[in-house]
């Protein structure tokens, strides 16, 4: 063994880098979600509106106590009703759930091939929490919102629903902390972070394209466990593109740039970031394999 601590530390640092490069597999979920996002573009075809300003429901929901409730509201663009809202809702629900399962399966399969396994627990927990928003949170929020409105409370229904969800989360966190005191510190950090991010996600879900925020939460968690600078940058750029798509009407960007508008142009930016990120990840892995 070398007696020089400097040489030893350098050797260990080299080993650490090599293991990280060997276990990186983030190009797969990026390419998968990129292709699936591009494939969703035809589903954004707008509905032909009748002449004369007749009221048109935007989604596939139903009237509950006089208020429109739609479980797929998270996925729609804000400004116009769609020709196939049910297909779009089912498509994104399937993409989020099956894409998440495929990603976890991919890392397990890759571990058998390379001999080094990426820990996916953090990704699984973060994505499950984020997935709970469209699958459970949004329908519950709309239901509570409709119920509260019909009861004529002075509070805005949506705000009351978010407050109710937060209250439930706080109670669950307190019960969990009492049952397992050794996890108090971790919970004290994690629970507020989850509460704040979930609240933001629920709030943002009201303006559409929320599936990209769910994907962003998952990719940021994956970038953390992958310990890759390149992937962290890609995940960050995707998060910015997801926020832009969610909070801004991308049609305006195309119009200002003088570009032609087309069906699904709203999702072009996040789809392109995912695909280009996947290609960059694949290239980085090929370069790393040559070096080692």
């Amino acid at each position: 063994m070398t007696d020089d601590p400097k040489v030893l530390l350098e050797e260990l640092s080299g080993l650490r880098k090599r293991v990280r490069h060997d276990r990186h597999g983030y190009w797969f979920p990026l390419l998968l979600f990129g292709v699936l996002t591009f494939a969703a573009m035809p589903l954004y075809a707008p509905k032909e509106l009748p002449v004369g300003g007749v009221h048109v429901d935007y989604g596939v929901g139903w009237r509950l106590f006089g208020t429109y409730v739609d479980p797929f509201r998270l996925y729609y663009p804000v400004i116009e009703p769609l020709e196939h809202p049910l297909a779009l809702g089912l498509y994104w629900t399937a993409v989020l759930v099956l894409g998440f399962l495929a990603t976890v399966r991919w890392y397990r399969w890759r571990a058998q091939r390379t001999g080094v396994e990426t820990p996916t627990r953090t990704y699984a927990v973060a994505t499950s929490l984020a997935l709970a928003v469209p699958l459970v949170g949004v329908p519950v929020l709309w239901f509570v919102s409709a119920t509260v409105n019909i009861m004529g409370w002075w509070l805005n229904g949506a705000r009351t629903a978010v407050a109710a969800l937060l209250l439930v989360a706080v109670v669950v966190a307190i019960v969990a902390m009492r049952r397992n005191p050794s996890r108090r510190v971790a919970l004290a950090v994690c629970v507020p972070a989850v509460l704040v991010s979930t609240t933001l996600l629920v709030a943002l879900s009201m303006v559409g394209h929320g599936q990209f925020l769910v994907l962003a939460v998952g990719l940021l968690a994956l970038a953390w466990v992958e310990r890759s600078t390149l992937f962290a940058v890609i995940a960050l750029v995707f998060t910015i593109s997801a926020l832009l798509t969610t909070l801004y009407t991308m049609e305006n960007v195309f119009w200002r740039l003088g570009l032609p508008q087309f069906v699904g142009d709203d999702v072009l930016l996040p789809a392109a970031v995912l695909l280009l990120g996947g290609v960059a990840g694949l290239a980085a892995q090929a370069v790393s394999r040559e070096q080692h």
């Binding site: 050797e11 080993l15 293991v19 001999g115 396994e117 820990p119």
Partner: peptide, 26 residues
């Protein structure tokens, strides 16, 4: 404090688990 044992621990700390063959070749 032994070069190879430190190497094994360093590699294992970077992953959920590592296969014997990977450690052997690395």
């Amino acid at each position: 404090h032994q070069r190879h044992r430190l190497g094994i621990l360093t590699i294992a700390a970077e992953a959920k688990r590592v296969e014997f063959g990977y450690l052997k070749s690395t």
